[in-house]
Amino acid sequence: MDLTPNGEQIAFQAATADWCRDHMPLEQARARPDGLWDQLEAMGLPRITAPEANGGLALDHATEALVFAELGRVLAPIGLLSSAVANRWCAAPSGGKVALALTVDAPGPLRVLDPVDAAAVLMPQPGSVRVFAISDRPAAHRPTIDLSTMQSRQEWAAAAWIADDIRAPLHLQLLAAAFAVGCADAARDMAAEYAKLREQFERPIGWFQALKHICADMAVRAAVARSQLYYAACALDANEADAAFHVAAAKRLADQAALENGRANIQVHGGIGMTDEAHPHLCLKRAHLLQFIAPAASAALLAA
């Protein structure tokens, strides 16, 4: 039993954080440079757990979750989630970006996230994931509330491929939880930094307990969610019988941390926190988007 990252994991995590700072900072989330996806592919980020036969790194979910939390911190493209799952579970590699469709119970219109330049669409379902051909036109792309994520609509098509493995949708839920943990971290750090810099009443606002305790609660939520994320990733790696519960718990806590921290961050910033120019709203909006991706249902959390 060891729930601290090992040397290799820390190195991968740090390298990802460094790369993100230089090439994919949060501050530029709403306008990512052309060719970013190719760079992500070159780094192997959509293929961390994919088998070597799929050009993957064949690493474990724990390592991938750590790295995805770093990616989530800078509000990395949502397509990374679906691509990572497709590359891991799809026998025939798609060879490009895979967009993410929100789950619908029966055939009908689909809401597709991050369709830009995608080669296919992945949709999670209870116990399986489906991959469809993408059938959209770039002209039909519309923004979402999350200014870093576009969307499109498409009809439910015959699946090009179905992964009937319970672990495939859990994998997506785990990665979405990792993104949410990163998002919660980003809001916490932004708030704490601002609370040290901004002065009122001749002292940093973080001196005041009313704000200090808001920030402390942000730290608690982020730590709680991160710990459960690690545990869930390990449970999935070990194929534990209760992995589905632990992944659902991770998603539930991470979603809450991202949303509550996102909200608190705006309060800590005061007026500037409400502006388009400042960054807090980017975290809040990403948090709202993540709530819709593989949400953790009560039933999954109460299952024996």
């Binding site: 039993m1 729930l3 709680v224 969610a225 459960q228 545990y231 519960f245 539930r252 109460l302």
Partner: peptide
């Protein structure tokens, strides 16, 4: 049901945090 589900997730996280903390001590 939802409150119980929430509590169960939180209790799981406490164990995860404890394990993380113990690993840190080790």
């Amino acid at each position: 049901a939802d409150s119980l589900a929430q509590l169960r997730a939180e209790v799981a996280a406490v164990r995860a945090m404890t394990y993380r903390n113990i690993s840190q001590v080790v």
